[in-house]
Nucleic acid binder design. Sequence first.
DNA 1: GTGTATAATGCAAATAATTGCACAACAACC
DNA 2: GGTTGTTGTGCAATTATTTGCATTATACAC
Lengths: 180, 180
Amino acid sequence: MALGHAIMTALLEDELSGYELARDFETSLGFFWQASHQQIYLELRKLSDKGWLSKREVSQSGKPNKIVYGLTTDGREALAEWVFSTTRNQAAKDNLLVKLYNLDADNVAHLAGEITARREEMMRRLYLYAKIRRRHYEQPETLPTRRKGVYLALALGIRQGEQFLAWCDEALDLLATVET
Amino acid sequence: MALGHAIMTALLEDELSGYELARDFETSLGFFWQASHQQIYLELRKLSDKGWLSKREVSQSGKPNKIVYGLTTDGREALAEWVFSTTRNQAAKDNLLVKLYNLDADNVAHLAGEITARREEMMRRLYLYAKIRRRHYEQPETLPTRRKGVYLALALGIRQGEQFLAWCDEALDLLATVET
DNA sequence: GTGTATAATGCAAATAATTGCACAACAACC
DNA sequence: GGTTGTTGTGCAATTATTTGCATTATACAC
């Protein structure tokens, strides 16, 4: 029930609707936990059924009304408990690396293309990360406790991202040595 | 059908049994794609049904007999095709980072413990990576084509791993500033 | 008033992955 | 002879995730 906990985490400080959660999951928390809107709506219902979330309809003008969810006391407790659970970590699954095991003269150009695309995507993401850090996390030691944790997640994203860029360059160089 | 392709990739050069695949998936390819033995046996049956794998019983002495699987011509073709498919990327789902968003005075000690454990695990893994690189991938430019791809996967693992260690240190330092 | 875009919520079916169990061959130790 | 450990294969049930629809409200441009 990991997605449930990610959603509850997103609701720690704000009430959010399913639509907003789905949108936010493409940034912020979503950098290391993605979910489609279908999955989010389903999970919201499950969490509500368990009594961990409360729902409330909000009238809007200029847009359809929305249903916002907030953590209940039970939800807050369950989340706090979950943090103490020992979760086995799931190492990343990446198709690109599996594909690289199949490298040959025929597909080298295609794989170089995929790497280039991923590199560009990562550049954009890093740009965003850098902006967020500059704006909100300039001096991590002075942040309130919870924000320190958020900063650390961001910091890992930045480190891994930068390393990924360097790897892309190395990979493209090596792929260039493959004779076609 | 990503697991299927990972299995087929593992069978590119060798015939392997389900048990051997499950074991190998804990190293090598398994560094970025893990699967339980149940999943592997199920997938092997599916791939056989499709005609992408052939099976063959092998008598053994001192151990129970095993059933080894090998790529058929159809399987080889399907795999080669898959490499050209555009696969939307990755999972990168990590409970630890979600947990960090919940950082507070109560759980800081626990989270520091989790990070320490992950750090140690990564140290062991990096040690293994380093050994593999030293033994088999000393001069990447001189490798045969397919091995260049395998090397690149390893190289990414090493880069990301080293960065992760550095992050663990940063994280532990910052967590030490949290007042309990 | 018709098409297009965005905001908003959801169901159903299929596929993927995990968890829990079961069983059998063989070795080696006590 | 019994227990424990490794090798080996598998099913069933559950949970998680993806894919493919489906629908409603509102704004805006043509």
